[in-house]
Computed example of a mutant assay.
Amino acid sequence: MLGGLAAGLIGTVVVSLLLIFPQAARDENRALTTPMPEPRLQTDPAADWQRYKAESMSRLAGYGWADREHGIAHIPIDEAMRQVAGDGIPDWPADARQEGRR
């Protein structure tokens, strides 16, 4: 009798779940429809780092266009710092300039 009651309860639960979630009983392909891209691994991280560092230092120490279309160029950072130290920053409060020289 206890086995029959357990079997009836299990059957009721299964039927109830199938009625509540009818899409769960369907056999659907849920695989990705687009292929995953292959990983792009670094083959020589040290050389990549050296190349990045050289490009960055070249940009910091050289002249070039930041935005040629709008006429914006970049200058070497040392020269830019000299110009800012000598001329100051436009629209910078005069009191702040004096505090920095104390």
Score class of each variant (00 low, 15 high):
residue 58 S to T: 09
residue 52 Y to A: 11
residue 30 R to S: 01
residue 71 G to K: 05
residue 79 E to D: 12
residue 66 A to H: 10
residue 57 M to Y: 11
residue 79 E to I: 05
residue 101 R to Y: 07
residue 55 E to S: 10
residue 72 I to K: 05
residue 50 Q to M: 12
residue 34 T to Q: 04
residue 100 G to M: 13
residue 56 S to A: 14
residue 56 S to T: 15
residue 17 L to W: 08
residue 101 R to N: 06
residue 67 D to W: 10
residue 12 T to D: 12
residue 80 A to H: 09
residue 53 K to A: 14
residue 73 A to Y: 15
residue 36 M to P: 00
residue 34 T to I: 08
residue 47 A to P: 00
residue 27 D to Y: 08
residue 34 T to Y: 01
residue 13 V to L: 12
residue 60 L to T: 04
residue 101 R to F: 06
residue 101 R to I: 04
residue 31 A to I: 08
residue 30 R to W: 10
residue 39 P to S: 01
residue 94 A to C: 06
residue 44 D to F: 01
residue 70 H to C: 05
residue 92 W to I: 03
residue 49 W to D: 10
residue 60 L to F: 05
residue 30 R to D: 05
residue 7 A to F: 03
residue 3 G to R: 11
residue 52 Y to P: 04
residue 47 A to Y: 01
residue 21 F to Q: 12
residue 20 I to Y: 10
residue 59 R to E: 05
residue 17 L to E: 09
residue 31 A to F: 06
residue 18 L to F: 02
residue 29 N to W: 07
residue 95 D to L: 14
residue 58 S to A: 15
residue 85 A to P: 01
residue 23 Q to F: 04
residue 40 R to G: 13
residue 44 D to G: 06
residue 52 Y to F: 14
residue 67 D to C: 06
residue 61 A to L: 08
residue 14 V to R: 03
residue 10 I to H: 04
residue 98 Q to W: 03
residue 67 D to R: 08
residue 13 V to S: 09
residue 68 R to E: 14
residue 56 S to M: 11
residue 9 L to W: 10
residue 26 R to A: 13
residue 85 A to H: 00
